[in-house]
Design a protein around this nucleic acid. Structure first.
Length: 271
DNA sequence: TTAGGCCTGCAC
DNA sequence: GTGCAGGCCTAA
């Protein structure tokens, strides 16, 4: 579900609900959703989150004393902001009651996501960002210049989060389609101008999706339970067999690194 | 580099 | 019932 645009929409829609509002109580309903499971969440009571930071698909909530909660939404995670007296939805794992008489609730049926507690934001960023590449919204050609000296295929590398952070299956396919690059293109053989096209396409696709509130295929919702509207603008993802909106040829569906992949065999030539 | 595992829900 | 799903980690 959530890739960079969806996490960004969650962040933006969460801020007005959360920032500066004192936390009245914290309830961990499912211990193994939190790392470490024994983290002193109660120490957040009396404090307020005052800042949010997103890097790739990771969302940091930073309290006024530095305590930091990292949220990763995995495949089915969501953050709900609802009245504190509203009934508890199934698969709600953490509940923050706020002085506004509203709750922030972390919910995740498949539990591929989770929450991580840190005493300080610095500790969180050291631990969480160490292995991540630059955020996909600000990645540049210079960041990818070292690809010339490395092996690997384009789509798996973009999904790996180490070169660029924030792309998942949907937006990789969209960006590759826009940049006219084949998903199995060797990264060391991408011409400089094609690399520029890739970086530009990544930014374009992500910014357009953010403007639409992200992509809702089925589950994704922002904190106010609103879906994203980018699904209708998808050019490649989910369109295998349908005509390419650029050349009219049939889009092809294949498996790449075990992931469903759609591309245009005419526009996206392998070099 | 690929396959499998982690989980649940949903379409078929 | 089977197969599949937007993520990501581990092991072979």
């Amino acid at each position: 579900m959530p890739e960079l645009p969806e996490v960004e929409e969650v962040r933006r829609s969460l801020e007005p609900e959360l920032l500066g509002v004192p936390i009245l109580s914290v309830e961990l309903l499912r211990g193994d959703f939190l790392t470490p499971p024994t983290a002193p969440l109660k120490k957040l009571v009396g404090h307020a989150f005052v800042r949010t930071v997103r890097h790739g698909k990771k969302l940091f909530l930073i309290a006024d004393d530095g305590q930091t909660l990292l949220i990763h939404l995995g495949m089915s995670g969501r953050v709900d902001c609802v009245a504190s007296d509203s009934s508890l939805a199934k698969h709600t794992h953490v509940r923050f009651a706020l002085a506004s008489k509203r709750d922030m609730r972390l919910r995740d049926p498949r539990r591929f996501g989770g929450a991580w507690y840190y005493q300080t934001f610095e500790a969180a960023r050291v631990r969480e960002l160490g292995a991540l590449g630059p955020d996909a919204l600000v990645v540049t050609v210079q960041h990818l210049a070292h690809w010339k000296q490395t092996r690997g295929r384009l789509k798996p590398r973009l999904l790996g989060q180490k070169d660029v952070a924030g792309l998942g299956n949907i937006y990789v396919d969209e960006a590759l389609w826009l940049a006219r690059l084949h998903p199995l293109q060797r990264v060391d053989r991408i011409a400089p101008e094609r690399l520029g096209a890739l970086v530009a396409a990544i930014r374009t696709v992500l910014e357009q999706s953010i403007r639409s509130g992200g992509t809702t295929l089925r589950d994704y919702r922002n904190v106010a339970d609103q879906p994203g509207e980018f699904a209708r603008q998808l050019q490649a993802y989910g369109r295998a067999g349908l005509p390419c909106l650029r050349c009219g040829g049939a889009l092809r569906g294949v498996q790449v690194a075990g992931r469903t992949t759609v591309f245009c065999p005419v526009c996206q030539r392998r070099r």
